[in-house]
């Protein structure tokens, strides 16, 4: 399957490190996600107070997307967002479950419940960057370059999107990992399954 599209930019966040195009932007000492995300917010110059209301999955996706989108010199409001992971919103699901498990200690909260959907992080990115665009959140056993490639190509070919922000954002059992990439008409790296797979593994 051929493509006339390119991976314009990509970002990784894992192991207390944020890297853009494989170059380290931030390397923090080993800690938990909450502490690391605060450090990253500050060090990356993210100015968005609503960040602190988000759940962990949204914080992770938001930070990664922000690095890519604020460095995009040609922002497009119909930049689609196509994300994926394995654990969906299970990290926050457990939190909500803990508020309802015991009848004597029952305190479900809309502020938690709203984050029990994986695509909320797409909403958070769309609000910040004013993206009126196609959204999709997929759950795969592991990173699936084939399906992400097909879906992004289809959106671009049918002109449903002029760019596509794709990738993997996972928060599960204390671990976290984000790999996002921006597909567009221009760039140095061809948009192929092989390249997506290679960059994911960096």
């Amino acid at each position: 399957m051929s493509s006339n599209h390119y991976i314009q930019a990509f970002v990784h966040i894992k192991n207390e490190t944020v890297s853009l195009h494989g170059n380290t932007l931030l390397a923090a000492p080993k800690t938990d996600f909450s502490t690391f995300s605060k450090t990253a917010y500050k060090e990356l110059g993210t100015k968005y107070p609503k960040f602190f209301k988000m759940d962990r999955l949204s914080k992770l996706a938001f930070l990664a997307a922000d690095v890519l989108l604020k460095n995009d010199k040609d922002p497009q409001e119909n930049t689609a967002i196509v994300l994926s992971n394995r654990a969906s919103s299970l990290d926050t699901d457990m939190k909500h479950q803990n508020t309802i498990a015991d009848a004597a200690n029952y305190y479900p909260s809309p502020a938690v419940f709203v984050y029990t959907l994986p695509n909320i992080c797409i909403g958070e990115i769309s609000i910040k960057h004013k993206l009126f665009s196609e959204n999709s959140f997929f759950i795969f056993d592991r990173f699936n370059a084939n399906y992400l490639f097909d879906y992004a190509e289809s959106l671009l070919k049918t002109k449903k999107a002029s760019k596509v922000l794709c990738g993997w954002v996972e928060v599960d059992a204390g671990n976290y990992e984000a790999f996002l990439y921006l597909v567009s008409d221009t760039g140095a790296i061809k948009h192929t399954i092989k390249e997506i797979t290679r960059l994911y593994k960096l």
């Binding site: 609000i127 993206l131 009126f132 959204n135």
Partner: peptide
């Protein structure tokens, strides 16, 4: 087609954008 409101995570857009 799909389109995000880019407005609020739990409330629909007032304009239906």
């Amino acid at each position: 087609a799909s389109c995000n409101d880019a407005n609020h995570i739990s409330g629909p857009s007032r304009t239906g954008e």
